[in-house]
Design a protein around this nucleic acid. Sequence first.
DNA 1: TAGATTGTTAATCGATTAACAATC
DNA 2: TAGATTGTTAATCGATTAACAATC
Lengths: 210, 210
Amino acid sequence: MKNKKFSQIDASIPTIRRLPSYLNVIRRALEKDLKVISGTVIASELELEPIQVRKDLAVTGIVGKPRVGYDVKELKTAIESFLNWDKKHKAIVIGTGNLGTALIGYPGFRQNGMDIIASFDSSPEKVGKNILNVQTYDMSKLSEMIKNESIEIAILTVPSEFAQEVTNTLVDAGISAIWNFTNEKLKVPSEVLVLREDLSSSYAVLSVCK
Amino acid sequence: MKNKKFSQIDASIPTIRRLPSYLNVIRRALEKDLKVISGTVIASELELEPIQVRKDLAVTGIVGKPRVGYDVKELKTAIESFLNWDKKHKAIVIGTGNLGTALIGYPGFRQNGMDIIASFDSSPEKVGKNILNVQTYDMSKLSEMIKNESIEIAILTVPSEFAQEVTNTLVDAGISAIWNFTNEKLKVPSEVLVLREDLSSSYAVLSVCK
DNA sequence: TAGATTGTTAATCGATTAACAATC
DNA sequence: TAGATTGTTAATCGATTAACAATC
């Protein structure tokens, strides 16, 4: 694989967010045994502009062939590598309600390097249970697990009123990224990355846009 | 409530997405019996720029008082009305797995006008079950329900491989908005609004941004 | 070859931020 | 009154889109 120049981390968030869709299309092309795929084709499948696809793909360092397109295998590798989806990312889920359980089973995670190694809940009847081979522990074990297992991502699906309290524990234990599925605005030190998955804001878009 | 001029629907998507957070802060202020709140205070609670908050709030038609801020009750009403959260929106959930079940129970929906009146599943052992007073029906009833009950929003949480098939049924029955929780790019006619809730793209951001 | 596609440089578009007069 | 905050107009910033030469 020729990476030629290493393009700095100059990918915008919108670009990063589109890459998984490209990867979907490309993986499907690979299943169909296509050797080569053009930005034009990817764009039309996703109803995007070809120029946007080309610009986005460029950040992964891929080099295409004029008139032909991109080598499918090479492109798959380039995107996976750019996204770090070719490496394991240890994660935990905090709160094993329906949402937490759904996320543990989400196929798009495991397929792409996310390794959920444990879940946590404060309810005694959930502790000790096993969800798709993921063991549920008591909250008191949270801190220890983060420290000992070098967890990268904490997926937070507890009820909103406990969100900040749990976050404080996570931060003290040295977590580096929190995926926040609650409606709470979390207060964290600047070195901790919080990504908010905000269903209310999406619902707002639906409500306004008809 | 003085709405003065009716500002066209010239709110950007990012603005619309921020409004629910403002509403959260404002509702909390109301619980504390505050009469008035400034954009500066809202901004600092959410770690945003005051100018952004003022600009965003302006789209709701609210008029503040220099040196004082906004009337809390008036502002709450203005945002709720702008978002159409003061009206009922009939919705259905298709696919009552863990994710569908979680969404049926999501408090931020019911509180803000979303009225989930039914759910659908293809598995016989789920049909007839009751989740938080929401009845699960067989998929064969889907089309009829949409037509008879004037459903506005279909929340799609079926496995990806059935997403397009179900979508076709929804579109044929005359749905106007689909909230797509699958990874599938849905093909719909241009008059149907599809909002994709894309966990893969968020996971990509987390993976790249450390 | 002719023509489709890439990749780069420039133009456009839209959202965020800054500046500041008006105001209570 | 003095000073904090609003709301408007202008400037900046960044992402998307357009144009086009290079190329296989």
